[in-house]
Structure formats: structure tokens, C-alpha cells
Simulated scan of single mutants.
Amino acid sequence: MIERADQLVLNYVSKAADAAHGVLRADQRLDFARRLRARIEAERHGSQNARQVAKVLARFGDPAALVEREARRLAEEGAATRRDTAVAAPVESAQPRGTGSTMRFPAIADDPDTPPGVRTYSKIAQERVHRREEGRGLPFAGLRRAAMFSANPMATGGRDARTVVKEHPRDTAAMVILVVAALLVPFDLPPLAIFEVPVVAWAVGAALVLFGDTWTLRDKLVGIGAPLLGYSVGGVLIGGLRVGTEAGLQAFVTQFFDVSGTMFMIGTGLGVVWLAYRLLDLT
């Protein structure tokens, strides 16, 4: 997950640099990207947790907004930017190279010295913009975006299915193995040593889920616990209902094993759906 955390930072800085094209001069863009990267590294405090790094980047807000703030700061200092030269070309030639650099990066929205009221209303505004971008009022907008396998990650916020699979190969493999374990239940395969093949496949998928860094512990327990819950509790309940109260233990055991496999498959499906949803949500 170290590569994942660093990639998030690189993607964010790259978006900011792209947004600076046509707004800042080349030297100003380099200086801006360097200071932005340094500020992000200072805010993440060496964390290699992708979720924590994503939260840090969310606090910085839209990269394009940072570029606009930088352009305004340079304008207030009297430094010519690329945008200015588009209107008055001679300005850049008269501007000394490197003018406008500063060692201090503008404060982000939730810095301690920002008034609490400003932070509160800024957060509310960002949430409203985010909801509009998510397509509020449109049913299953997030699900439709996730299904856009050929979508441009820049347009989907990196949350289309292709990008999620590419950036989380181990987590994706874990979910696939869990699905395969469920699909193997109806087949009467010879056991491996004393273990049934679906159980072995489930154990491999469960281990990958447990050792992953993307999901929270609760998500992991739900994902791998749903098949076990379906097999045990579901098998007992459905098996008990099928035999009734008059049948003996042998009839109950027979019905339990008849329905427990199906309940295991249903539980696995629900667990994988939850893991996939949380993987999309956390990214």
C-alpha cells in the first residue's frame, strides 16, 4: 500500500500541474508543484496509509482552486503569469525569471488559524459541490459510474471499475477467489487432504482480505464472515424450518447439509458485494 499512497500524492500534484497550464509560467508551475508536494508531505507526516493520505488530499480541495489561489497571490505581488502574458505579451519578457516564488504555501481550508465559521461553511460548500458531481437525485449514479470500464479516470474521479481494479489488484483477486469458492460448492470435487475444495478456496480468499490494507477491520469481518454466517446460522434456520418440530436429529442433519451449501453461496455473494462497495467507497 506504500505505492498506493505515494501514487495518490503524485496523481494529485499532477492534476494541479495540469490545471496550471495556461495559467502559470513554466518556472512558476515548477515552483508551485514543488511547494505543493512539500506541503502535502508535511501534512501526511510520513503516513503510508492510503486512506489517511486520501483524507489529507481531500483537505487541500480541488487542485484547480489551488492554482487559482496561486495565480491571485502572484498577481497581488505584481508577478506576471502565463494568463497575463496572453493579454500583454511584453510583460513576461520584462519579468525577471523566478519572480513570484515564495517559501510559504497558502494555508489550506482547515488550518488552525482559519476561523471556525469559515471552515464550517467551506466544508458545507465542498459537500454540496461533491453531491452535485456525484449526480444527486439520479438513482444509482455512483454504481453507473463504477460500471464505466472504459471511462476516463479524470472524468470519474478515479472511481470507475477499471481504475479501481488496476489500483487494487490484490483486493480484487481476493473477491474473485471468494466468488470462485462459492461457485465450486455445487460440484462434487475430491477433497484436498481432509478439506473440501470450496473451503480451501474460501480460506485463501479470506486470508487475502484479512491481510489487505484497504478495508477496515469491520469491512473484513463482514466480507469473510457472511459466508460462515450463511452456512451455520442460515443452514440451521432453513434446515430446521424444512424438517419441522416432529422430525428427529438425523432428518435435521440431512436437511442442514442440503441447504447449508446454498446458504454459503448466498452469504459469499452478499459479503463480496459489501467488499466491492466498500472498496469503491474508500477509493
Rank of each mutant, 00 (worst) to 15 (best):
residue 58 A to Q: 14
residue 48 Q to W: 03
residue 226 A to F: 12
residue 251 A to W: 03
residue 244 G to Y: 13
residue 247 A to D: 06
residue 173 A to S: 10
residue 269 G to V: 01
residue 245 T to E: 13
residue 20 A to R: 03
residue 217 L to E: 13
residue 85 T to S: 09
residue 153 P to Q: 15
residue 135 G to T: 14
residue 230 G to F: 04
residue 77 E to R: 08
residue 155 A to V: 09
residue 165 V to C: 13
residue 253 V to I: 04
residue 37 R to I: 00
residue 108 I to S: 12
residue 37 R to H: 11
residue 108 I to W: 13
residue 91 V to G: 00
residue 176 V to S: 05
residue 205 G to C: 05
residue 147 A to V: 02
residue 196 E to F: 07
residue 26 A to E: 08
residue 267 G to K: 03
residue 266 I to A: 12
residue 268 T to N: 01
residue 108 I to G: 09
residue 216 T to E: 14
residue 171 D to Y: 00
residue 71 A to D: 09
residue 32 F to Y: 07
residue 254 T to M: 09
residue 216 T to L: 13
residue 220 K to V: 06
residue 54 A to K: 12
residue 233 V to N: 15
residue 201 A to C: 08
residue 276 A to E: 00
residue 227 P to H: 15
residue 30 L to K: 09
residue 244 G to K: 12
residue 71 A to T: 04
residue 61 G to H: 08
residue 59 R to M: 02
residue 275 L to G: 02
residue 8 L to K: 09
residue 210 L to S: 13
residue 55 K to C: 01
residue 203 A to V: 04
residue 144 R to H: 13
residue 174 A to S: 06
residue 168 H to I: 00
residue 156 T to D: 09
residue 4 R to E: 02
residue 138 L to F: 14
residue 4 R to H: 06
residue 96 P to H: 02
residue 22 G to D: 01
residue 217 L to G: 11
residue 129 V to S: 11
residue 183 L to K: 01
residue 38 A to G: 05
residue 57 L to G: 07
residue 119 R to M: 15
residue 212 G to S: 15
residue 229 L to V: 15
residue 271 G to L: 04
residue 49 N to T: 08
residue 127 E to C: 02
residue 102 T to H: 05
residue 67 V to P: 01
residue 56 V to E: 02
residue 171 D to N: 04
residue 138 L to I: 13
residue 114 T to C: 13
residue 96 P to Q: 00
residue 246 E to K: 03
residue 247 A to W: 03
residue 175 M to R: 09
residue 197 V to N: 01
residue 209 V to I: 15
residue 244 G to A: 10
residue 77 E to Q: 09
residue 82 R to C: 08
residue 96 P to L: 05
residue 76 E to R: 06
residue 101 S to T: 11
residue 132 R to A: 11
residue 191 P to F: 08
residue 254 T to Q: 14
residue 122 S to Y: 10
residue 21 H to K: 14
residue 113 D to I: 07
residue 97 R to Q: 11
residue 147 A to S: 13
residue 264 F to W: 11
residue 3 E to M: 10
residue 60 F to S: 05
residue 136 R to S: 11
residue 96 P to T: 00
residue 215 W to C: 05
residue 282 L to K: 01
residue 187 F to W: 12
residue 85 T to A: 15
residue 125 A to C: 01
residue 281 D to H: 10
residue 84 D to C: 06
residue 279 L to Q: 04
residue 118 V to Y: 12
residue 194 I to G: 07
residue 220 K to F: 11
residue 107 A to M: 07
residue 71 A to K: 11
residue 161 A to M: 15
residue 262 T to W: 14
residue 58 A to I: 00
residue 106 P to N: 07
residue 265 M to Q: 14
residue 28 Q to G: 03
residue 40 I to K: 02
residue 214 T to W: 01
residue 166 K to C: 06
residue 204 V to Y: 07
residue 253 V to W: 11
residue 168 H to E: 04
residue 239 G to M: 10
residue 210 L to T: 15
residue 193 A to G: 06
residue 273 V to G: 07
residue 3 E to I: 07
residue 174 A to I: 06
residue 167 E to R: 06
residue 268 T to H: 02
residue 121 Y to I: 10
residue 219 D to M: 05
residue 152 N to S: 14
residue 87 V to M: 12
residue 48 Q to S: 07
residue 264 F to S: 12
residue 247 A to L: 04
residue 195 F to M: 10
residue 147 A to W: 08
residue 244 G to W: 13
residue 243 V to D: 08
residue 161 A to W: 13
residue 242 R to A: 15
residue 51 R to S: 03
residue 63 P to G: 08
residue 11 N to Q: 07
residue 203 A to M: 12
